[in-house]
């Protein structure tokens, strides 16, 4: 019985303690939120003056007020560009915040502090932070690496290109996010991306081709076409997609050949690209695949590409062959 009593008392005490913590925390959080709102309201005017005219905020701000102002400016920095953004960067530099955040990112023991610093550096927007962020791509905590990728994308630092591609290919950061960041770097990242086309890693070559397709121009078509003979289907798929954007009439034979690739993803990519190029030469091959490709997605993409090139001809062919993919594509092209 004494065991029962002890257990009952312990459980009751546990319930009461949890309730007490619950109530106290709720009250404390509400108090903090109220206080924070008040401080923010007080500082909003100073932040706006700094944004628009570069007017220095009052010198006598407390540490807490400086922190709040930095957060406010960081949030604004995500949405503004040009001179307004430069005012924010200059303020952070004067206050020594960039150096401080870089130090925190490199040295803090708690991962969440390093991640916060990496994240903030992206909002602050100073390219001076780029080398430290590239280092952070090798942090042992995944969230720190994710924050660093995001910040490098926001900073548009072209020198980060190769490190970003490697981080994505090695699985240190989500590939989708890495590719987004690389896309933000824009055409200045192209030399780095082109050099990656000879990388021994399939994933790196494929990522580079995908981005070249999005950022590059007609001068990249030859390189993309040569990659259509790559041993990796991942690379051939991205090469086919890239040709749809940077390629032209003279790349049609390669894309038509890719329609016969044994890997369905390559065939589907080739069909999509032929649809982008809209050359009637491809119509016959595309309709044949729409009607007869054994893989559903290849047939669907082929039909859509065919309808893009010539809706009338595709409609006539759909009536004759009763291909469900062609009928869908023709109906959809009529709506769009």
């Amino acid at each position: 019985m004494s065991v029962l009593v002890i257990a009952a008392l312990a459980l009751s005490a546990c319930s009461i303690a949890m309730l007490a913590v619950l109530v106290t925390r709720r009250w404390e959080l509400a108090r903090r939120a109220r206080h924070r709102r008040q401080v923010e309201d007080r500082l909003k005017q100073a932040a706006l003056e700094l944004l628009h005219g570069g007017v220095e905020p009052p010198a006598e701000l407390s540490v807490e007020e400086k922190e709040t102002l930095a957060d406010l400016l960081g949030r604004y920095a995500r949405t503004v560009r040009g001179p307004t953004h430069d005012h924010i960067v200059a303020y952070f530099a004067r206050e020594g915040l960039i150096g401080r955040e870089v130090t925190v990112m490199a040295r803090a023991r708690q991962p969440w502090r390093r991640a916060t610093a990496a994240f903030r550096l992206g909002d602050i927007g100073s390219v001076d932070a780029a080398p430290a962020l590239v280092e952070a791509l090798r942090d042992k905590d995944r969230y720190v690496r994710i924050a660093a990728v995001r910040s490098l994308g926001r900073l548009r630092a072209p020198e980060a290109g190769a490190a970003l591609v490697a981080a994505g290919a090695e699985g240190r950061a989500p590939e989708g996010l890495v590719r987004w960041a690389l896309l933000q770097l824009g055409p200045p990242a192209l030399p780095e991306l082109r050099s990656l086309l000879s990388s021994p890693s399939d994933r790196e070559r494929a990522a580079a081709l995908q981005l070249i397709g999005l950022l590059g121009g007609p001068s990249d078509a030859g390189e993309a076409e040569s990659r259509m003979r790559d041993s990796s289907s991942l690379v051939r798929t991205q090469a086919a997609r890239a040709l749809g954007r940077v390629g032209g009439e003279r790349n049609l034979p390669s894309l038509l050949a890719a329609l016969e690739d044994r890997i369905p993803a390559v065939r589907a990519a080739a069909a999509i690209s032929l649809g982008y190029l809209r050359d009637p030469i491809a119509l016959d091959a595309l309709t044949q695949h729409a009607e007869g490709d054994p893989v559903f997605d290849v047939a669907r993409e082929s039909a859509r590409a065919a309808a893009k090139i010539d809706r009338q001809a595709s409609a006539a062919r759909a009536r004759a062959s009763d291909s469900e993919h062609l009928r869908e594509a023709v109906d959809l092209a009529g709506i769009r």
Partner: peptide, 15 residues
């Protein structure tokens, strides 16, 4: 970690 998950960037991303 959600604070650093870059959801906004995923929303903007063609990938």
């Amino acid at each position: 970690g959600r604070a650093y998950s870059a959801a906004e960037e995923a929303f903007d991303s063609p990938f």
